[in-house]
Computed example of a mutant assay.
Amino acid sequence: MPTAQTAPPVTAFMLIKTTPEWLAMTPRERMDAFTTQVVPAIRSKTTGVRSRFYDTEFYSTRVTDVWVWEADDHDAYQHLIDALRETPFWDRYFEIVDLLVGTENGYARTYGLDPVATIAT
Rank of each mutant, 00 (worst) to 15 (best):
M1F: 06
M1G: 10
P2I: 03
T6M: 11
P8Q: 09
P8H: 06
A12T: 11
L15V: 01
L15H: 06
K17P: 02
K17Q: 07
T18P: 03
T18R: 10
T18N: 08
P20F: 00
E21F: 05
A24C: 11
M25C: 04
M25G: 00
M25V: 01
R28N: 15
R28M: 13
E29Q: 13
M31H: 13
D32K: 11
D32S: 05
A33Y: 00
A33E: 00
T35E: 11
T35I: 11
Q37H: 14
Q37P: 01
Q37A: 11
R43A: 09
R43I: 06
S44C: 09
T47L: 05
R50T: 15
R52I: 15
E57K: 14
E57T: 11
E57G: 07
S60C: 12
R62L: 08
R62F: 05
T64H: 10
T64N: 01
T64K: 00
D65L: 01
V68K: 01
W69P: 00
E70W: 03
A71P: 00
D72W: 00
D72F: 03
D73V: 07
H74D: 10
D75V: 15
A76C: 04
H79G: 03
L80G: 00
I81R: 14
L84S: 04
R85P: 08
R85A: 09
T87K: 05
P88N: 11
F89K: 00
D91L: 09
I96K: 07
I96V: 15
L99F: 15
L100N: 08
V101P: 01
V101C: 01
E104G: 03
Y107H: 10
A108P: 06
R109T: 07
T110E: 10
T110S: 10
Y111L: 14
G112N: 10
G112T: 08
G112H: 12
G112P: 05
L113W: 09
D114F: 09
P115I: 15
P115S: 14
T118V: 06
T118F: 06
I119R: 13
I119T: 14
I119K: 13
I119H: 14
A120Y: 01
